[in-house]
Simulated assay, not measured.
Amino acid sequence: MTSHEGRSLIVVTGATGNIGRSLVGRLLADGAAVRALTRDPARAGLPAGAETVGADLTGADDLASLLAGADALFLNLAAGGEQAATAVLDAAVRAGVRRVVLNSSMAVTDTPADDTHFIARLHAGLERAVRDSGLEWTFVRGGNYATNALAWAPSIRESGVVREAHPGAQGVPVHEADLADVAAVALLDRSGAHLGKAYVVTGPERMTLARQVAEIAAATGREIRVEQISEEEAAEAMSGRYLTREAALELVRMFGRTVDAPPFPVSDAVERVTGRPGRTFARWARDHAADFS
C-alpha cells in the first residue's frame, strides 16, 4: 500500500459503480487520499490520484490489508452483497478504522415494516451491524436512483421506445453525484455534525417515469415514446442474475402504487448537508446524454 503523507485515507468499496466513481473524484478534489477497491484495476478507469486496488470482496482476499491505515470506509452493499459487506465491516473494526459511511436505502423506516420489505430487510440488517460495530457511522439512505433510467438506454438507442408497466409512477430521482457528495461530507467531517445521522436523500423534485423520458428526449434531441406493457412483461424484463422474477414483480407492483400515492416526500438533505441544492433530473439527463445516443 502506498504512503498517504498524513492525509485522511478513505477506503471506497464499489469504487467503479455510479456512486463510487463520483465519490472517488469528490474525495480527491477535497484533498483526501483514496483507496479505491475494484475487481479489475486495469479496467477501472479511475483518476490517477486514487490508489486503485484489486479486491474480490466475495472471495478469500485479505480484507485487513485492504483497510490498513484507513481513517474511514464507504461501505456499499452493491459491492459484493450482504455477507461481503459484513466481512468488510468486521475487517474495518479489526484494522482500527474510525468511521463508516453506509450507502443504505430509503426503504428503511426504522419500524417493524423493515422486516417484511425485502429491500429494507437487507439494508436494515446491515445498518444494525454498523451500529453494533462501535464505529462512528452515518447512513446515506438513497433510492429511486436516476441511474435506474439507464435500463431504458438499449431500447431508446434501438427503437426510440421506452416500455413500462406504469408510466405514471412517481418518484424523486436522485443524481448519483449528490449521493456521493453527501457521503463525502460525512466521511471527511471533523465537527461530528453528521455522526449517528441517517439521511434520506432524494432528488429535488417529484416526477413521473413519463416525464423522465421526456427529459431524456430533450437532453438527447431524440424523439422517444412511452409504450405501456403489462406488469408481468415488465417483471420479466427486469429479472435476471440479481433479481428473481418474483422480486421483480413485487418491485413493479410497488411502482404501480406510486401512481396515486407517492411513497416519499422530497428531501432537502442534499442542501442541508452540502450547502447547495440537489441536481435536477434534467441535469442528470444532460450528464448522461451520450448513454442514450
Rank of each mutant, 00 (worst) to 15 (best):
S3A: 15
H4K: 07
H4F: 14
G6R: 07
I10C: 03
I10P: 01
I10N: 00
V11L: 06
A15Q: 02
N18D: 15
I19V: 15
G25A: 02
G25Y: 03
R26G: 01
R26K: 07
L27C: 06
A29N: 07
A29D: 13
G31C: 12
A32L: 11
A33I: 07
A33K: 01
V34T: 01
A36M: 03
R43G: 04
A44I: 12
L46F: 11
A48K: 10
V53P: 01
A60W: 05
A60R: 11
D61N: 07
L63V: 02
L66K: 00
A68W: 00
A70P: 00
A72F: 09
L75N: 03
L75M: 05
N76S: 15
L77M: 14
G81E: 03
E82R: 09
A85W: 01
A85C: 11
A87W: 00
A87P: 01
L89H: 02
R94V: 03
V100A: 04
V101T: 05
L102M: 09
L102P: 01
T109S: 14
D110G: 05
T111V: 13
D115G: 15
H117W: 03
F118R: 14
F118C: 09
I119A: 10
I119F: 08
R121L: 14
R121C: 06
L122K: 14
R128Y: 10
A129L: 09
G134V: 11
L135M: 11
W137S: 01
T138Q: 05
V140E: 03
G143V: 06
N144V: 12
Y145V: 06
A146F: 07
T147K: 00
W152R: 04
S155T: 12
S155W: 02
S155Q: 12
S155K: 05
E158F: 04
E164H: 13
H166R: 13
G171P: 00
G171S: 13
V172I: 13
V172T: 15
H175S: 08
D181Q: 10
A184Y: 03
A186Y: 00
L187Q: 02
H194W: 13
A198Q: 02
A198C: 11
Y199P: 00
Y199S: 03
V200H: 04
G203C: 11
E205W: 05
E205S: 15
R206I: 04
R206T: 04
R206V: 00
M207L: 15
T208E: 05
Q212C: 15
A217I: 12
A217K: 09
T220N: 03
R225H: 08
V226R: 06
E227A: 11
E227S: 12
Q228I: 01
I229Q: 08
S230C: 12
A234D: 09
A234Q: 06
E236F: 08
S239T: 09
G240V: 09
R241I: 12
T244Q: 07
R245F: 09
E246L: 10
E250R: 15
L251M: 14
F255R: 07
G256F: 05
R257Y: 08
V259H: 06
V259I: 14
A261T: 14
P265H: 13
P265R: 08
A269H: 01
E271A: 11
R272L: 12
R272K: 14
V273T: 04
G275D: 06
R276L: 08
A285H: 01
D287H: 07
H288A: 04
A289R: 15
A289S: 14
A289I: 09
D291A: 10
S293Y: 10
